[in-house]
Simulated scan of single mutants.
Amino acid sequence: MKNLANFFFEAGMLKRTPRTGFQFLGSGTESVAEHIFRATLIGYSLARLDGGVDVGRVLALCLFHDIPEARTGDLNYVNKKYVKVDEERAVDDLARTLPFGDDYRGLLAEFAAGETPEARIAHDADQLEMILALKEYKDLGNRYADEWYPFAVRRLRTESAKRLAETIWATDSTRWWFDENSDWWVRGGS
């Protein structure tokens, strides 16, 4: 039980571990935990759209894909040009302490290889989460988001993710809650 408690504390570090790419974008902040949460929701949605994959497997891949960053930190694309992280060691060190360590190792290996349909969907969920963030910052006036978007789209692997990316980019991120045809905005529920 002590090892599980330690794992949960380690996972909690991801709430305080910033995603570092936003410093190059010039605006925006997000923790790794926030990224994982939305990526997991996206993965679930893509898996359900696909209909032919193991939804639970996609969820597990999305949920665990960035857990090593509690130990390694989040490296953006510029960092990765110069810094080599021993992610395998970070995975192995944690896996040795977990009752499901072999499962954890397997999930990270599957995600990295990207060969199964589930891993491709999880990978796309990871990228779509970034595309959503870019769109949010674009809608708030960050002109550099337009430059980043084509590169993120080129990393997508599934057709449904590519279609979803197009829809995301064409959708106003600030209007999801507003129904202009409703009297609510005039009467306030009276």
Results as ranks from 00 to 15, higher is better:
K80A: 14
K81Y: 07
K81H: 13
Y82G: 01
V83T: 13
V85H: 01
V85T: 08
V85M: 08
E87F: 00
E87I: 10
R89L: 09
A90M: 09
V91W: 03
D92W: 02
A95L: 06
A95P: 02
T97W: 00
P99Q: 01
G101D: 02
G106N: 12
L107S: 01
L107I: 05
A109W: 05
A112D: 10
A113W: 02
E115V: 09
E115K: 14
T116P: 05
T116D: 08
T116H: 07
P117C: 12
P117L: 11
E118R: 02
E118N: 04
R120I: 04
D124T: 09
L128G: 04
M130V: 13
L132G: 01
A133C: 11
L134W: 04
K135E: 05
K135F: 10
D146L: 14
E147A: 15
W148A: 13
Y149S: 03
P150R: 11
P150H: 10
A152G: 00
A152F: 14
R155Y: 01
R155Q: 13
R155W: 02
R157C: 08
R157T: 07
L164F: 07
L164S: 04
A165V: 12
E166Y: 04
T167V: 12
W169D: 06
A170S: 15
A170G: 09
D172Q: 08
S173G: 15
S173Y: 05
T174M: 12
W176A: 14
W177D: 15
W177I: 09
F178E: 10
